[in-house]
Amino acid sequence: MTLARKYLNAILRSRKLLIQTLLLCFALMIFTPFLMIVLRSVGRGWFGRLWLPPELTLDWYRWAVEVTNIVEITKNTLVIALLAVLMSTVIAIPTGWALGRRNIPGRELLMSILLLPRMIPPIAFALGVAQIFYRTDLINTHIGVALAHVSICAPFAILILSATFEALDERLLEASGVCGANPIRTFIHVVFPLILPGVLASMIFTFTTSYNEFTLTLMTYGKDTVTLPVRTYLAIGEGYWEVTSAMSILLIIPSIIVLFMIQRQVAPEKLVGGFKGV
């Protein structure tokens, strides 16, 4: 009894160690699924109660590349994501400016209306989008799929940008004017550097949203616009888990590279929309 208490006390005293262990368990919980995919994709004859695959092979990757046109799918996904980012930013800059800098009666209400697409389950309006797109021949075009993505990307871009523009200090603009800068110079040397982080954050956010979007893509894709998530879904349906794993690893690489590049530019929390007001 006393011994047990002694141990308990010792554990409690080394709190730092305890917390480190807890965090490590957490990291394991997040990363082991990916490790499983990697192992599955390089293992052969991994049956029964074995911890590790008995034989290593790259055959599944060869299969994956032969069966799926990886290059084409990556290109589709990137083109669609870039189009969605472009359109959302073009839409969000003026709207965000108006919402952030001008006194609009009922601003809160307007904002919640614009954010409504994020509140309703995407599948509900994806059905409508699909029907409209079938009628207007936008199904199976890059621009069509990107437009479908804009419906949920734009609201968040507007939210981030309006917060960015609202934070601009009026006095800085005035000071620049007093110092003799014309509006264009003020914009280039004062406004632009101040809003750049916000605009970048919004673009990155839209990019990841579009890159990972599944519901709206599934409703509007065709054989020429298969994207990464849709291809993974189809592969899971085909049932060859080894090949599916290899394919997922190949398909996830671009997203990891993009993430690695951007996480230095912007606080990674921004990616989830963990900014104030949400």
Binding site: L23, F26, A27, I30, F31, T32, P33, F34, L35, M36, I37, R40, T208, Y211, N212, F214, L228, P229, T232, Y233, I236, W241, T244, S245, S248, L251, I252, S255, I256, L259, Q263, P268, E269, L271, V272
Partner: peptide
């Protein structure tokens, strides 16, 4: 590192996460 770990599930495509969880 742990902060990045925390947002990983939201950043990688959800389907791939689900596939890994099914395997695990």
């Amino acid at each position: 590192f742990y902060r990045l770990t925390m947002i990983t599930p939201r950043v990688v495509p959800g389907l791939i996460g689900a596939l890994g969880l099914l395997l695990l």
